[in-house]
Design a binder for these strands. Structure first.
Length: 440
RNA sequence: CGGAGCAUAGCGCAGCCUGGUAGCGCAUCUGCUUUGGGAGCAGAGGGUCGCAGGUUCAAAUCCUGCUGCUCCGACCA
């Protein structure tokens, strides 16, 4: 992409409403624009990140055996009356009426709908286990939306729903998601710690929140410091191995980790003092096992091998990709701007023409741009008329992981400069060697 | 839902108290000079002063109502 042809509305000054760094940087880097309180448009640059996040989530959901689908944003009130949550959910649910005065709602979550769908088609235990997920916009009419897309009213959510014949099967499904989540967050460069959590309005008796530590986090968390050194499960983990997954689960839950509402001061005090961590955290994922809470009222049953009807055991598993984007920035930035992990960087490489209008630097940039693009890289080529300083500032603000600085000084020696955003390191390199270097 | 604020150019703000031609910085456009860490000079464009009503010869400014937005707290993914 040529920057001159792109839509990247950079702000030099900080909008006054932005209080936390991720919100400030997302506005400054031209990623989002607020349209109403807690409702945001995702501009092209922000959408690129959001899509990369969604794709990682998708890959790991699929790897675990979950199957993607897509449910609508608008739901019928009748559906929610079946579970009894139409009245319970309160004012957080946006209720609307259609032209026929039918009561509808903008879905805050999809347990009811997915249960209705599975009930309609799944009649035999042989179709289980089943895990269906979708990535769809949700609306929760928060009392006080804040911090940009971190706590917005409209937000993107990956929600998965598992269906099993019995509690043991459901436990296996729960562990699959547990492992998938560990991998998902690790791939985004985040150290997410699973913590025992309240189940809230979703219900159930087994639940973990995945929390990343950040000073701007909304919840107070307590955990063992060893969590920060634990390596995530590898890509070849066998999701069909129930015992193997259980051991991963056990290993990741044996150390103390809890949010403030589940905090046990005595258990925390038992941790060696040097390893005791009391910090603030951002919830980026939440998983629940809630048994038959929805399948029972919906009459979602299958016939088991014994010929009898069994009420399906369910769990639900949520990740907020839009919040994750903010969380990643909270976790990875410096005074100059965002530092994207390579896996989610909206562009992997930036090419900066340091002397706009110079035919030599221009030609060198064009050549590099063509080569890298042909090699499959997402490249942002700053071909604008800005001066070098402004281009450096922009590239750092928007966090391009690799920046190729092409200027007359280097080209005189047949070299360009390759800069790494994360540590500012730079090396002189011949343009022809760039591709090899990036692969390394 | 309690408390506190804000609303004037794309962004950040001044002007309001004490009513009388709508201003500054950045951004944008044009030209020239510049060109390796957010350049300089000169010129230009851009405004229903959130909305409605009231007071007044005259309202961004005073009064009333409304709307939108932000922050703190409680709540919540």
């Amino acid at each position: 992409m040529r920057l001159s042809r792109y839509f990247l509305p950079i702000l030099r000054e900080v909008p006054k409403e932005a209080e936390i760094v991720s919100h400030r940087l997302m506005l400054r880097a031209g990623m989002i624009r607020q349209e109403s309180a807690g409702i945001y448009a995702w501009l092209p640059f922000g959408l690129r990140v959001l899509n990369k996040v969604c794709n990682i989530i998708r890959e790991e959901q699929n790897r675990s055996g979950a199957v993607e689908m897509l449910m609508p944003t608008i739901q019928s009130a009748d559906l929610w009356r079946e579970s009894g949550r139409y009245d319970d959910y309160g004012k957080e649910m946006l209720r609307i009426k259609d032209r026929h005065e039918r009561e509808m709602l903008f879905g805050p979550t999809n347990e009811e709908m997915i249960t209705e769908i599975v009930r309609a088609y799944v009649k035999s235990y042989k179709a289980l286990p089943l895990n269906l997920y979708h990535i769809q916009w949700k609306f929760r009419d928060e009392v006080r939306p804040r911090f940009g897309v971190y706590r917005s009213r409209e937000f993107l959510m990956k929600d998965a729903y598992s269906f099993d014949l019995d509690a043991a099967g459901a436990r296996h499904s729960y562990n699959k998601m547990f492992v998938a989540y560990l991998r998902t967050f690790a791939r985004m460069g985040l150290k997410a710690i699973p913590m025992v959590a309240d189940t809230g309005p979703i219900g159930g008796n087994l639940s973990h929140e995945f929390i990343i530590l950040a000073s701007t986090g909304e919840s107070e968390v307590f955990c063992h410091g060893d969590y920060l050194e634990m390596a995530p499960p590898s890509a070849d983990v066998n999701f069909d191995d129930a015992a193997g997954l259980q051991s991963v689960f056990d290993r990741w839950t044996q150390l103390y980790a809890a949010t403030s509402e589940k905090h046990d001061e005595a258990a925390f005090a038992a941790i060696p003092e040097a390893r005791r961590m009391a910090a603030r955290g951002i919830e980026v994922g939440h998983i629940f096992y809630f048994g038959t809470k929805y399948s029972e009222p919906f009459g979602a049953k299958v016939q088991g091998p014994d010929g009898a009807e069994h009420t399906i055991h369910m769990g639900s598993y949520g990740i907020g990709p839009s919040r994750l984007v903010a969380a990643m920035i909270e976790a990875s930035h410096d005074d100059n701007g965002i530092i994207w992990p390579d896996a989610v960087a909206p562009f992997q490489v930036g090419i900066l023409n340091l002397k706009a209008g110079d035919s030599t630097t221009g030609a060198a940039c064009e050549k590099l741009y063509a080569e890298l693009t042909a090699a499959g890289y997402d490249v942002l080529y700053d071909d604008t008329e800005e001066r070098a300083g402004a281009k450096f500032a922009t590239a750092d603000l928007i966090g391009l992981p690799w920046q190729i600085l092409v200027g007359p000084k280097g080209l005189a020696d047949g070299k360009v400069e390759l800069k790494r955003r994360v540590d500012g390191s730079r090396e002189l390199i011949a343009p022809g060697d760039i591709l090899e270097r990036l692969k390394a």
